[in-house]
Amino acid sequence: MVKEIERMGLTVVHVCTVTPISLTVGANRIVPAVAIPYPLGNPKLTADEEFSLRKKLVQQALDALEQPVSEQTIFEN
């Protein structure tokens, strides 16, 4: 899906936990997520802590969108 969206000229970032799959499907901007059942959260944290974590990850995704890349890139946390 990432590839088809990018094919249309949209800048897209893939936020996912299993980054090897993301590389296989051809995503170019990849931000590693927390866990498969909760990519942008963590049930072990308090609601406030979890919100901060999520906001940080989304901010990373935004940074990736603003970053020029020439090849598949994983933006490590």
């Binding site: 899906m1 990432v2 590839k3 088809e4 969206i5 094919r7 249309m8 000229g9 949209l10 800048t11 897209v12 970032v13 893939h14 936020v15 996912c16 936990t17 299993v18 799959i21 993301s22 997520a33 990519p39 942008l40 989304v58 995704a61 969108l65």
Partner: peptide, 20 residues
Amino acid sequence: ASEIAHELVNEGVQAVILTS
């Protein structure tokens, strides 16, 4: 994804976050 992307481009969207 191709249908979604066409729609987004027509609506003037420039960036996408896709979560899996």
